[in-house]
Computed example of a mutant assay.
Amino acid sequence: MESNSLKEVQAVYKQLLDAWNNRNARGMADLFTEDGESIGFDGSQSVGREEIFSHLNPIFEHHQTARFVSKVNDVHFLSSDIVILRAIAGMLPPQSNDINPNVNTHHTLIVVKKEGNWRIQLFQNTPAQFHGRPELVEQMTEELKALLKEL
């Protein structure tokens, strides 16, 4: 697929993380399609921009949230206007410079192009606990820690 579209899709994901890291619920919600869906780390499901905003806003208002650090692992074009982006992400707790391996996650996004703009149709934030396989948690954590050197 066209490299410009690839860059645009990756930019949407970066904007999503930047909005989270800046505690900007409106900025996050506006990246979704009107009927977009967000499935949070705890399984919370929000459908539609306003519901996504209503879910995120109190989190940012009442909690010090950790910052995401991420690495895109795959961008797969299903068509010229539908893309699946997969990434791994870790979180830096407030006042910390180290990844908390207990909240490593897989990010999966379905991004669609509507009216010339890329928007998120689905964002799923799945815990990467690898039950019974601590070496996989450690491997992912080390991969994410390597990204901290680039910040």
Rank of each mutant, 00 (worst) to 15 (best):
A25H: 11
V112R: 08
S70D: 13
R26I: 02
P93E: 05
E138F: 12
S54D: 15
E150F: 11
F60E: 00
S96F: 02
V83Q: 05
T141Q: 13
F60C: 01
P93M: 06
M140I: 07
A29I: 03
F53Q: 13
I84K: 06
D98A: 11
N73G: 13
R133E: 07
G48S: 03
S54H: 15
R86K: 10
M91L: 10
N125V: 01
K7P: 00
T126H: 07
Q10F: 05
F123T: 01
I99G: 02
V137C: 02
L16Y: 15
F60V: 05
I88C: 04
V137Y: 02
H106V: 09
Q121I: 01
E2N: 14
E51G: 01
H107L: 11
G48P: 04
V111K: 00
R67H: 04
T65V: 13
S54A: 15
D42T: 12
L122Q: 10
K114G: 01
E37A: 07
A11I: 01
Q121Y: 10
V69I: 15
L147R: 14
V69D: 02
Q124S: 10
K149Y: 07
P58T: 12
E135T: 08
A29Q: 04
F32R: 07
G132F: 08
A87N: 05
G40R: 05
S54G: 13
S80F: 06
P93H: 07
G43N: 07
S3G: 01
R119M: 11
D74I: 01
A66G: 13
I39M: 09
P101T: 08
A87M: 04
L92K: 10
K114F: 02
L78N: 05
T105S: 12
E142N: 14
Q45W: 09
F60G: 00
I110A: 06
V75R: 09
D30V: 01
F32G: 04
N104T: 11
V12F: 06
G116E: 07
I52S: 05
D18R: 06
P93Y: 05
V103D: 01
M140P: 00
N97E: 09
V111Q: 00
N4M: 08
F41C: 05
S79F: 04
P134T: 06
E150P: 02
H55E: 12
N125C: 06
N73C: 04
A19K: 07
E34T: 13
I84S: 02
L6E: 12
T65L: 01
G90Y: 00
F68I: 09
M91S: 08
V75M: 09
R119K: 15
A146T: 10
S3V: 12
P127W: 02
Q10E: 15
A146K: 14
Q95A: 10
V72Y: 04
D74F: 03
A11E: 14
R133I: 03
E2C: 03
K149L: 12
R67N: 06
G27D: 10
E115K: 11
F77A: 15
P134R: 06
E135V: 08
T65M: 10
E143R: 15
L31S: 09
F77H: 07
I39T: 05
A29P: 03
V111E: 00
N4E: 11
K114S: 09
N100H: 05
S54Y: 10
S38R: 13
L31M: 08
F60S: 01
N117K: 14
V137I: 13
L109T: 08
S54R: 15
N57R: 15
E37N: 03
